[in-house]
Design a protein around this nucleic acid. Structure first.
Lengths: 154, 154
DNA sequence: TGTGAAAGACATCGCGA
DNA sequence: TCGCGATGTCTTTCACA
């Protein structure tokens, strides 16, 4: 697929804001008929520009009262150790995101738990249970100031 | 709305994985008919358990080659300064997430930009242009190890 | 590429158990 | 609360400009 044009990008913006927007709605806003909208979306899905559609749930209502970002420094940095750590971390359900980062730490984890006690249990029983964990520094989210899934594609 | 039961949670799991899953598909998996699925989803939408539906786009394909987490320490911490910083940050399109955190810094920003130069420009022209910015420490994402939007609701 | 129309699938809403 | 059936809407495809 070629690069996206302005129309594709406007469609993406609308779908990021509302994944259930109908082709008809989009066509109406863009002043086009339904078919080209349908075909453009299909192509962007096939080309991977649109990776998925998802329902966004409310963390608080579902009882995940505590979100923490957890910076981790490993002791050993050989390839085997990194791969081992990554596969172990990926299997922890509390960890929704994990990045290998460049900076003062090796990995950054985003952790969702019910409360502070659950976070303590996560650190003590799961994270610290892994070999090779060096320094760990946690930041607790007190207030989300901004959260948007969408990227400014236009 | 009362608390979610096991069926609601299974529905949420499916919708988090695929926001376009049809009621028919879900009904089939859960061994129920379409109507109760439809009504349960409707109730979860109205009660706010489901906040939105969104298309998930591919950052890399769209040219956002650099993701950075940026820890910010402010100089002044009076209410007015915090509110001013938050409203200014929220208007920056590079910032997809911003949290007021407890820990070694005051705020954590997630920043999406095209490349390192764009990040430098963001820091120099936008972030540093704000009053009241003290210490700033950035971590660059080298490799996403795990990324999931969904929460383990079951 | 885009438009318009037609067929099929789905969401939505009564009614009954 | 759930299951079934009717209706309107959307998706999907096809012929054509």
């Amino acid at each position: 697929m070629k690069a996206l044009d302005a129309i594709d990008r406007r469609i993406l913006t609308m779908l990021q804001a509302n994944g259930k927007a109908t082709n008809k709605e989009i066509a109406g806003v863009l002043g086009m008929s339904i078919t080209p909208i349908y075909e453009r979306i299909k192509k962007m899905e096939e080309a991977g520009y649109i990776k998925a559609y998802a329902a966004v749930v409310d963390r608080d209502l579902l009882g995940f009262k505590l979100v923490a970002y957890c910076n981790v420094q490993l002791k050993e940095h050989s390839k085997e150790y990194l791969e081992q750590f990554e596969s172990q971390i990926a299997s922890l359900e509390e960890v929704s995101e994990c990045y290998h980062i460049a900076g003062m730490f090796d990995y950054l984890l985003k952790v969702h738990v019910q409360d502070v006690e659950a976070y303590r249990a996560f650190l003590a029983d799961k994270l610290a249970a892994l070999d090779n964990i060096g320094n760990v520094q946690s930041s607790f989210v007190m207030k989300p100031v901004k959260w948007q899934l969408s990227l400014p594609v236009e």
